[in-house]
Amino acid sequence: MVHPDFTILFVDNPLTSTDFYQSLFGAEPVERTPTFALFVLNTGMKLGLWSRHTAEPSVRGECGGTEICFRHDAAADVDRIYADWSGRGLRVLQTPVEMDFGYTFVVTDPDGHRLRVYSMSAD
Rank of each mutant, 00 (worst) to 15 (best):
F10T: 11
M99C: 09
F36I: 06
S17C: 04
T33V: 05
D109F: 02
V2T: 12
V78E: 04
G87H: 11
T7K: 07
T16A: 15
A75P: 08
L47Q: 00
P34C: 02
R116P: 00
I8E: 15
T16I: 13
Q94M: 15
I68R: 05
V40M: 11
R114H: 09
S121D: 12
Y82P: 06
R116V: 00
E62Y: 09
H53M: 10
T16L: 14
I68L: 14
A122S: 13
F6D: 10
H72N: 03
V117K: 02
H53S: 08
V30A: 10
G102H: 07
G87N: 04
S119V: 03
R71T: 05
F25I: 01
P14T: 04
E98Y: 00
Q22H: 10
A27I: 00
Y21D: 00
F70C: 03
A55I: 07
E98S: 13
R80I: 00
R114Q: 08
S23M: 13
V92R: 04
D84M: 06
S23Q: 15
E28G: 05
F36D: 04
W50K: 09
L15D: 10
D111P: 08
T66K: 10
L93K: 13
D77N: 14
H72W: 05
G65Q: 07
A76F: 01
E31D: 11
G64T: 09
R88D: 03
Y21S: 01
V11H: 01
R52H: 10
L49G: 03
R88C: 09
F39C: 04
G112H: 10
F10S: 04
V106L: 06
K46T: 11
L38M: 15
V59T: 09
T43S: 15
L47R: 01
M120N: 08
D5L: 03
G65A: 11
E67I: 14
N42Y: 06
H53E: 15
Y82M: 03
